[in-house]
Amino acid sequence: MTSFEKFRQQLAAGEVRDLAQVTIPEKAKSKQGQRSGIVTRAIAVAIDISVTIVVMLTNYGLLWLFLLLIAPIHLFEMPDASWFFFAGFVLLWAYWTAAWALSGRTLGNHLMGLQVVDYKGKRLSWPLSALRSIFSMVFPIGLIWVVVSPTNRSLQDTILRTSVVHNWSVTLNDPFVRE
């Protein structure tokens, strides 16, 4: 049992565990801060790509509506599939770069409780984030390396010295917030 006085002393001494840990299931508490495995990361990537596809389709629909309003429909042609693919590629690249450099989490990361950190456990710099983002997209198969890597790192992580770690509590205990 902890009295208020004792609790305040511990709080002042920085001995109190992150209170948000209370909300993390017991089984997952020991996993916090450890590098994630392939399934979690693959699901996070799948969510990100799904989000990108939904955004692209929405943009396409809006563009179609807009052209329908200002021009006869027979003048509107669907963009080339390669252009569509390219636009999605750029969007995903920008999204991943910004998300990793700003908070370390994309939407998929957030849902799966993951965070991308550099070799010091800190926030990725913008160039590093952009590099990792483009690397992940041109060589997605590098993610498979997580299965055999002794440190749960993808090929991109191994080369760029980054890590994807479990961090289920969003604000507290966040290295980026403490900076």
Binding site: G14, E15, R17, D18, Q21, Q32, G33, Q34, R35, G37, I38, V117, D118, Y119, K120, G121, K122, V147, V148, S149, P150, T151, N152, S163, V165, N173, P175, R178
Partner: peptide
């Protein structure tokens, strides 16, 4: 991970601790 480790005869287990600095400030 367990299956992969057994296939490639890895016995030491994986080193999945967080990078230095991320969680070392006494809160985990």
């Amino acid at each position: 991970n367990k299956i992969a480790d057994s296939i490639i005869f890895r016995r030491k287990g994986r080193k999945v601790e967080s990078p230095a600095g991320a969680y070392s400030e006494g809160d985990v």
